[in-house]
């Protein structure tokens, strides 16, 4: 087996698994049952999407996916934080 085939298999496997992980997180976000479950699922979805972008960037060999995943990581952090803060107090900024 050549290294090209090995990497092709690994990258395809990683992309498939991360896509499945995204679907599972989306299912949890859809299903709930409560608001904190949805926020947790959204946070998990952000991380999964970030990793999926990263692997896709490795496969397509463009640096843009790296930038995109960095933006997703930071944006996900801020949005999860705001949502959790909202659940805690009912308002985002005190």
């Amino acid at each position: 087996m050549t290294s090209a085939t090995l990497l092709w298999i690994a990258l395809t496997y990683a992309q498939t698994m991360l896509a499945i992980a995204g679907c599972l997180a989306t299912w949890r976000m859809w299903k709930g049952p409560r608001a904190q479950d949805r926020v947790l699922a959204l946070d998990c979805l952000y991380i999964t999407t970030m990793l999926l972008f990263f692997v896709t960037g490795m496969r397509l060999d463009t640096p843009f996916f790296f930038e995109a995943s960095l933006v997703i990581a930071i944006g996900g952090f801020v949005s999860s934080l705001a949502l959790a803060k909202f659940l805690l107090r009912g308002e985002v900024i005190e």
Partner: peptide, 20 residues
């Protein structure tokens, strides 16, 4: 590299599976 990719994505999907 392939092993690390497989380990990382498997752990992530196990985490998401647990979440669901």
């Amino acid at each position: 590299v392939a092993a690390l990719l497989v380990i990382g994505s498997t752990l992530t999907v196990l985490g998401a599976f647990g979440l669901a």
